[in-house]
């Protein structure tokens, strides 16, 4: 029983964590929190089902196409909803522009794909629903792969260091002659890939359902809020903790009370520590 709660809790937690990382990657490059993070996760599932189940492409091809498509959505987000409002960051227009774009993605999917959840293809056929079923460990695998990949990218490659420089200080990075705009586009493509991977890896668990967008938006944001903005390790810890907490609450109190419990914890932690548990202090204002 404990194993069942842990398996499903860690699995959904890994998806939440990856959406949290998606938020963070976009934020680091642009100082923008985007409502499209959860939609990217939703699209990962929908594109996977579309390419593999509906169009009958081989799994590997479908996987690659899904990530490519999500990367493209990430780039479009940057062009349509982020770049035009970057100049007026302090007015928080990005909240509105990304909300608008996210709603458009979700509604379009609802109408053109389906409002009923659609099946996501079985990728390997390992496990038969038990705690070691692939639908539980695939998200964890994806989460681990993303963490390792990001570490390698940031520590070992020039592009990765440039990402870090931009995240650290936008103006200074531009003054150093870094191609800030291209790096931002690349970051949004990367965020698209991570979000898409989250949805794809969690597809068997979450199904290909348009409504996942809103759910992931919220539950993917919770780890960011808990772990601190821009702190990907915090997001992973927060995400996994949230997943397990949510499933444990489902098991102990069940139903509506579980979601109320998650929300209450979220609000209380936020009010007590607005910058998150591992987050940085507030920046200078004057």
């Amino acid at each position: 029983m404990l194993s069942a709660i842990l398996a499903s809790g860690l699995a959904v937690g890994a998806v939440y964590a990856l959406i949290g990382v998606t938020y963070n990657v976009m934020f680091s490059a642009s100082r923008v929190m985007s409502f499209t993070a959860g939609q990217l996760g939703m699209l990962g599932g929908v594109f996977g089902a579309l390419f593999i189940s509906r169009l009958g492409l081989p799994g590997v091809v479908g996987f690659a196409l899904t990530l490519a498509a999500c990367a493209l959505v990430g780039v479009i987000t940057e062009i349509v909803a982020v770049r035009p409002v970057l100049g007026r960051l302090e007015q928080h227009l990005y909240v509105l522009s990304t909300l608008a774009f996210a709603l458009m993605i979700q509604q379009f999917t609802a109408i053109e794909w389906s409002t009923e959840p659609q099946p996501f293809p079985r990728l390997f056929g390992i496990g038969s629903g038990g705690p070691f079923d692939e639908k539980f460990w695939l998200p964890l695998l994806a989460c681990a792969a993303v963490i390792v990949g990001l570490e390698l990218l940031y520590r070992r490659t020039l592009v990765g260091r440039a990402f870090l420089a931009i995240a650290e200080d936008n103006f200074a990075a531009r003054a150093l002659g870094l191609p800030e705009r291209n790096l931002r586009i690349a970051s949004f493509a990367l965020a698209g890939v991570i979000g898409g991977l989250a949805g794809f890896a969690g597809g068997e668990l979450l199904l290909a359902n348009f409504a996942n967008g809103g759910v992931l938006n919220f539950y993917g944001f919770v780890p960011v809020a808990l772990g601190g903005l821009g702190n990907s390790r915090g997001a992973v810890v927060g995400g996994l903790a949230l997943g397990v907490f949510q499933q444990a609450a489902n098991f102990t109190v069940g139903g509506v009370f579980a979601s109320v419990a998650v929300f209450v914890v979220f609000i209380v932690v936020l009010l007590a520590a607005p910058s998150g548990l591992f987050g940085p202090q507030q920046a200078r204002r004057v």
Binding site: I5, F251, G254, G255
Partner: peptide, 20 residues
């Protein structure tokens, strides 16, 4: 007796409770 959020991704916990 329970109601479950239709978007719950995994209902194993609910199922375990019912079995218990």
């Amino acid at each position: 007796q329970a109601t479950i959020d239709p978007n719950t991704s995994d209902v194993t916990p609910d199922m375990l409770r019912m079995r218990d």
